[in-house]
Amino acid sequence: MKYIVDIKCLSVYIKGKKILECIDLKIPRNSIFTIMGPSGSGKSTLLRVINRLIDLIPYAKVEGKVYVFGMNIYNVDPYILRKQIGMVFQTPNPFPHLSIYDNVALGAKLNGVARNKDELDKIVEWALRKAMLWDEVKDRLREPPSKLSGGQRQRLCLARALAIKPKLLLLDEPTANIDPVNTRKIEETLTSLKNEMTIVMVTHSPHQAARISDYIAFLYMGKLIEWGPSSQILIRPRSKLTEKFLRGEI
């Protein structure tokens, strides 16, 4: 199975309004795949179809076929699907009532990734190290996340997503609300994770896409304008729209 995600003519309507129009996309295994586009292009919605979080939105209608890990996502239990997919959101959203440790541990514990306390400790440490947060929080794992800075919180969310040992990691503009230092740390983490999982990131910044992507898709007004290896998209885009976006004109 070369492609972790295989999308065939996917259309999404929310309250009757067309958000995505017949998207065809294949996401290769162990790559960083960036979906870029201006705001309102439907890229967040596309991401939420992959793990069926779109189900939470009332009046959302999905057409077309989406295969993740080779399975049609609408033929499997969404909870089983989501257990294998980690997600990081635009706004850092660690659970406010749980400690730093529990934020990371919760998913691993409830999903049965760790069977005992020792394993759980190991996974939490591993995830926090991967998110480059371990050294900053190892002495205050029992404190609430409100004590962390915005960037640290986002890395905590990244660790939370990693702790369920996902095969696929989705990131919805993870650095949109974060300072450059934290942005770099997150990007480093993502690059280092490539061998262990497939990463799909949504961003509105062509620069970020250029920094870390293996593949880039450009989405505009609900339509997939083009996609391919990042070098090709960045250097020889086929579409005028892509060129304009790369120059920061849309």
Partner: peptide, 8 residues
């Protein structure tokens, strides 16, 4: 197309 998951 969307069916309600069993656990729900």
């Amino acid at each position: 197309m969307t069916s309600i998951p069993r656990s729900d």
